[in-house]
Amino acid sequence: MYEWDFTSVIENSDLLWQGLLGTLAITGTALAFGLPLGLILALSRLSPRRWLAWPAGFVIEFFRTTPPLVQLFWFFFALPILIDIQMTPYLAAAITFSIQSSAFFAEVFRAGIVSIEKGQWEAARAIGMQRPQAMRRIILPQAVKRMIPAFTERAIELMKTTTLVATVSYADLLYQANELAQKTYRPIEVFTATALIYFVVIFGLSLCVQAVERRLAVSGDSTVR
């Protein structure tokens, strides 16, 4: 029978804590860039101009259909050869997850925008608004409210996906756990504790999402996925 011993994990908990901060940092960065980029992609894809809509559609579909780990390797190993930059694990991860999440956010934005009744567009046009004005003043404010649950769900997916950065030696929670497991020869305790930390953080977040969803449902707003 295996004897569990968490003392080495507890003694080195600051390492895991730093890892968690690393996870939050890369998630935050990807959100900060991914959300605006996703909006731009969505608006471009919905644009009546084909030269805008088509490339945006391609970027969205490409980054949604290829594995994030392949994207990460490409940006980490291949991009610095193509353009002359000093590539770091953080930079590669930031680029990958910003673009990757923006592709998913774009679809959330798009679903939210097309879910708004046609009458809202017509009412905006009837008082003389141009398309960009109607989008900014009438459509988006309503759409964003409906998108909140889908957004938070995506943000949670993003946080889980950031574990991939461990494979290019960015010091996120999983990477730190791996280091610690090798150092202490206690992989069971370390990886179990790590899984629990992820669970607590992510499950906590998704409980918040469910609360938001319930409140929106009570206030009578439908939501989009």
Binding site: T163, F191, A195, Y198, F199
Partner: peptide, 22 residues
Amino acid sequence: EFFRNTPVLVQIFWFYFAFPIL
């Protein structure tokens, strides 16, 4: 809930590095 709310890579690492001991 547990498997939905933990990253799959963590699960894989657990089965690769931790599980063999058990």
